[in-house]
Amino acid sequence: MSIEKVKEYFAEYGREDDILEFDQSSATVELAAQAANVIPARIAKTLSFKNKAGDNAILVVVAGDAKIDNKKYKAEFATKAKMLNPDEVVEYIGHAIGGVCPFAIANDGVKVFLDVSMKRFSTVFPACGSSNSAIELTCDEMEKYSHCEKWVDVCKAYDDTLSE
């Protein structure tokens, strides 16, 4: 089970007990916000895309109210934004849609990027490998635990006046 791998991953940092498991689904931004009792923008959604070569994946973690800006994405990654299909998500990432996160990734070649849309908030809530889990992390902790390559600016349509 994917959440078990994420718990093992966070056990290395002594944070496994910080993983929240909800009685209800948190598979969408709206459901996750309800479960965590926060505004949807504070949900850190992990989007999975084919890499430039098309033989692996990259993850981009963005704020819950953000959308990928295709022009910014292409400028950053030198390729068109092409999302993985559900089977590819499980194959490359190891977590099913609804629980995709940048932790305990199945394939070592998957690179993680964090979008600046999350930096508006003191903490955000990424999933933890299942459709009813999350963990509250600061942006610095997101950077540390996701082992991200770097912060990027590839989103649009989010409310930059929101903060918490």
Rank of each mutant, 00 (worst) to 15 (best):
residue 54 G to H: 02
residue 117 S to L: 01
residue 49 F to S: 03
residue 66 A to V: 09
residue 98 G to K: 05
residue 129 G to Q: 13
residue 62 V to E: 05
residue 113 F to P: 04
residue 76 E to I: 05
residue 120 R to M: 02
residue 52 K to N: 02
residue 46 T to D: 15
residue 125 F to S: 13
residue 80 K to V: 12
residue 82 K to V: 15
residue 100 V to E: 00
residue 55 D to S: 14
residue 74 K to Y: 11
residue 138 T to C: 06
residue 119 K to L: 12
residue 101 C to G: 06
residue 116 V to A: 09
residue 119 K to W: 07
residue 48 S to H: 02
residue 105 I to D: 03
residue 46 T to V: 13
residue 55 D to Y: 13
residue 98 G to H: 03
residue 88 E to F: 04
residue 88 E to M: 05
residue 111 K to A: 10
residue 88 E to A: 07
residue 90 V to D: 13
residue 90 V to W: 11
residue 102 P to E: 12
residue 64 G to S: 11
residue 139 C to N: 06
residue 97 I to M: 10
residue 88 E to P: 07
residue 91 E to L: 11
residue 112 V to K: 02
residue 112 V to H: 03
residue 88 E to I: 05
residue 123 T to C: 07
residue 80 K to Q: 09
residue 51 N to P: 14
residue 93 I to N: 00
residue 68 I to R: 11
residue 73 Y to V: 09
residue 105 I to L: 07
residue 61 V to Q: 13
residue 49 F to V: 06
residue 44 A to C: 15
residue 90 V to R: 15
residue 109 G to D: 15
residue 90 V to L: 15
residue 67 K to A: 15
residue 133 S to A: 02
residue 122 S to H: 12
residue 86 P to M: 00
residue 49 F to D: 04
residue 45 K to C: 00
residue 68 I to Q: 14
residue 50 K to P: 11
residue 133 S to N: 00
residue 89 V to I: 15
residue 90 V to N: 12
residue 66 A to I: 06
residue 114 L to T: 12
residue 91 E to T: 13
residue 80 K to R: 08
residue 137 L to H: 04
residue 98 G to E: 08
residue 56 N to P: 06
residue 75 A to K: 15
residue 123 T to H: 08
residue 109 G to H: 12
residue 85 N to H: 00
residue 62 V to R: 06
residue 86 P to H: 01
residue 99 G to C: 06
residue 63 A to H: 11
residue 134 A to Y: 04
residue 52 K to G: 00
residue 57 A to T: 10
residue 79 T to K: 09
residue 96 A to E: 14
residue 101 C to D: 06
residue 100 V to F: 05
residue 62 V to D: 05
residue 114 L to W: 05
residue 130 S to N: 06
residue 58 I to H: 08
residue 72 K to Q: 04
residue 85 N to Y: 03
residue 56 N to G: 08
residue 132 N to K: 02
residue 57 A to M: 07
residue 96 A to G: 14
residue 138 T to F: 05
residue 102 P to W: 08
residue 139 C to E: 03
residue 44 A to F: 15
residue 65 D to N: 05
residue 133 S to G: 01
residue 86 P to R: 01
residue 103 F to A: 10
residue 132 N to R: 01
residue 89 V to L: 12
residue 138 T to N: 05
residue 51 N to D: 15
residue 93 I to Y: 01
residue 84 L to T: 06
residue 132 N to H: 04
residue 54 G to C: 03
residue 126 P to R: 12
residue 57 A to L: 07
residue 76 E to D: 07
residue 64 G to T: 09
residue 79 T to S: 13
residue 113 F to I: 05
residue 118 M to V: 01
residue 63 A to K: 08
residue 43 I to V: 01
residue 112 V to T: 10
residue 75 A to Y: 11
residue 126 P to G: 13
residue 120 R to T: 02
residue 135 I to R: 03
residue 107 N to H: 02
residue 80 K to F: 10
residue 108 D to C: 04
